[in-house]
Simulated assay, not measured.
Amino acid sequence: MPEFWSALGNTIWWAFTVLVMISYLMVLFSIIGDVFRDHTLSGGAKALWIFCLVFFTFITAIVYILVRGKGMTERAVAQASQNKKAADDYIRSVAGSPADEIARAKSLLDAGTISADEFASLKAKALS
């Protein structure tokens, strides 16, 4: 029976260690992304932060979050907003308007590709 508890304890400790390591890697990559996203930070300061992250890992991560955490959030929100705006603009550009769809259907009707009934259904669909 003691072997079971020892194995269970080792398994729980391993799972906890893996969880902490994955969490730290997520924080580390978030910090690195933020360092390179910040345009107000000079190149030397970026190099210093990266150097410290490599050699003084946990302390630097904690200090970075405490010192630059609010700006980190603001930059992430601004980036997400910019990405959403770009995606919305792209969707609007490729979606087309109902007038465009009706014009395409009319050109198909004029070319004889579709019948008048099909044109009417496409027109109704575009206007709905």
Rank of each mutant, 00 (worst) to 15 (best):
A78D: 15
S97H: 09
N10S: 10
V77P: 00
T60A: 03
I22V: 05
V94K: 10
D89E: 13
R75W: 00
A103R: 13
K46M: 01
V67R: 04
W13N: 06
D110I: 02
D110A: 03
F119C: 03
M26S: 06
A15Q: 09
F58H: 12
A7T: 04
T17K: 04
L108I: 04
S81P: 00
E3Y: 05
L66D: 08
A87D: 14
F56T: 08
V18G: 00
K125F: 02
R68V: 01
A120Q: 15
G69K: 05
S115K: 07
F119H: 12
L122D: 06
G69I: 01
R75Y: 02
D88G: 03
V67M: 00
F51P: 02
F58L: 05
K84D: 13
G44A: 12
M26D: 10
A120N: 13
V54C: 06
I114Y: 02
D88S: 08
L66N: 09
A116E: 15
S42V: 03
A126R: 12
V67F: 00
V77R: 14
A111C: 05
K106Y: 08
A80G: 05
R92A: 04
S128C: 03
L8S: 05
A103N: 09
R37I: 01
R92L: 01
L28T: 07
G33M: 03
E101W: 02
V27I: 12
W5S: 05
S30D: 14
D110W: 01
Q79K: 13
A80F: 03
V27D: 11
W49M: 10
M21W: 13
V94C: 01
F119P: 00
L41A: 13
M1Q: 05
L28F: 04
E74A: 05
L109W: 14
L53M: 11
S115M: 02
K123S: 07
A45H: 12
M21C: 06
N83T: 12
L19R: 11
A95C: 03
V18E: 13
I12K: 06
K46E: 07
H39N: 08
S93H: 07
A7D: 09
V94Y: 04
T17V: 02
A86K: 14
I32V: 09
N83W: 14
A87M: 11
K46Q: 09
I50N: 14
S115D: 09
G71C: 02
R68M: 02
S115F: 00
K70T: 08
K106W: 04
D38E: 15
A61M: 15
L122I: 06
A103D: 12
A78G: 04
T40C: 00
F36T: 05
C52F: 07
T57N: 15
S6M: 05
F55W: 11
I114Q: 07
S128V: 03
A126N: 10
S128D: 13
R104S: 09
K106D: 09
F56R: 08
R75S: 07
D110C: 00
Q79Y: 12
V27Q: 10
I12N: 06
S128Y: 09
A95P: 00
G43V: 12
I65M: 11
I22G: 01
Y64P: 03
L48A: 12
D89I: 03
L127C: 07
F51V: 11
D110T: 10
V63Q: 07
V20T: 06
I91Y: 10
L109C: 08
Y64Q: 09
L25F: 07
L25Q: 11
F36Y: 15
M1I: 03
S81M: 04
M1A: 07
S81T: 11
A111F: 04
D88M: 01
A76S: 14
L25V: 08
